[in-house]
Design a protein around this nucleic acid. Structure first.
Length: 266
DNA sequence: CAAACTCCCTGTTAGC
DNA sequence: TGCTAACAGGGAGTTT
């Protein structure tokens, strides 16, 4: 499922080919894919706009358009954005399609229909409330420690909370906590300064490694491109790669959570 | 304010 | 073999 590194991979794939291109036509095959405005308005407004830049904020893709507007896309569970000749459908699950000058189209493929597109005049309407970018310059170990100190809940659901920190999903949270040797149920304000430093570094290292590898292939057919291999995610019952003790799986915040019962203490 | 739950969806898999 | 039911998962929205 697309998290920050997968969305960044998509962004890089698209930016090279679509920057400067003009939208000729917009089609919507599943209306609920368009969160706002209505699918009808979406199709009416988009033609004539040019793509100025393609950025990313957390797990959102952000297309800056001219005349000034923003097209945002969130891939949620199964979404992907693919470029193809206009005449060829990339799969039977294409929910919307933008046709560009030059004969290419951008197709929003999304098997499970959780993905959304937004067409707005102010991007902050969608991404204004999300937390700092974990790979951004404004995010520091000191800031992270302060953020953790003010929260009493368990660390795992906190890291999944997009208003706390942007871009992490279940896979990278589980991987980060394992590598930093922190128990997923540990209370955020009880994390020491040195643990916070470690977690800070680990999060940035793992995200960077995953981006370098074009994301993670978890082998369920949802995201097949990536070369990053998980160390604990999906490995319940198998030996911990550090200590050989079997990896445990619990449910935290309604999400499956693998961890090593000896390496990760509370 | 935070934690817990519900909902949206479909492909995969476990169980019969 | 073929069927059904359970399950996974992000995040907005609602309830506790």
């Amino acid at each position: 499922m697309p998290e920050l590194p997968e969305v960044e991979t998509v962004r890089r794939r698209l930016a090279a080919k679509l920057t400067g291109k003009k939208i000729l036509k917009a089609e919507v095959f599943w209306d609920r894919t368009i969160d706002r405005p209505s699918a009808k308005e979406f199709k009416r407004i988009l033609p004539g706009h040019k793509i100025v830049s393609i950025k990313r904020r957390g797990k959102y893709l952000l297309f800056e358009l001219a005349p000034k507007r923003f097209l945002l896309a969130h891939l949620r569970m199964s979404g992907d954005l693919l470029i193809s000749p206009s005449s060829i459908k990339v799969s039977k699950h294409v929910r919307s399609e933008l046709h560009f000058s030059g004969g290419l189209s951008l197709q929003f493929e999304d098997t499970r229909k959780f993905g959304r597109m937004y067409l707005v005049s102010d991007a902050d309407e969608i991404v204004g409330k999300i937390g700092p970018e974990p790979l951004g310059e404004e995010f520091s170990s000191e800031l992270f420690f302060k953020m953790l100190k003010s929260k009493k809940g368990a660390i795992k659901p906190l890291l999944l909370n997009q208003t706390f920190l942007a871009g992490l999903g279940n896979i990278y949270v589980v991987e980060s906590l394992w590598r930093a040797k922190i128990h997923p149920l540990k209370r955020a304000h009880k994390i020491s300064a040195s643990e916070a430093r470690s977690l800070f570094k680990v999060i940035r290292d793992i995200l960077s490694e995953a981006i370098k590898n074009s994301g993670t292939d978890i082998g369920d057919g949802v995201w097949e491109a990536g070369g990053y291999r998980t160390r604990v995610y999906g490995r319940a019952g198998k030996p911990c790669l550090r200590c050989k003790i079997p990896i445990k799986r619990i449910v935290v915040g309604q999400r499956g959570t693998e961890f090593c019962p000896t390496c990760q203490r509370r």
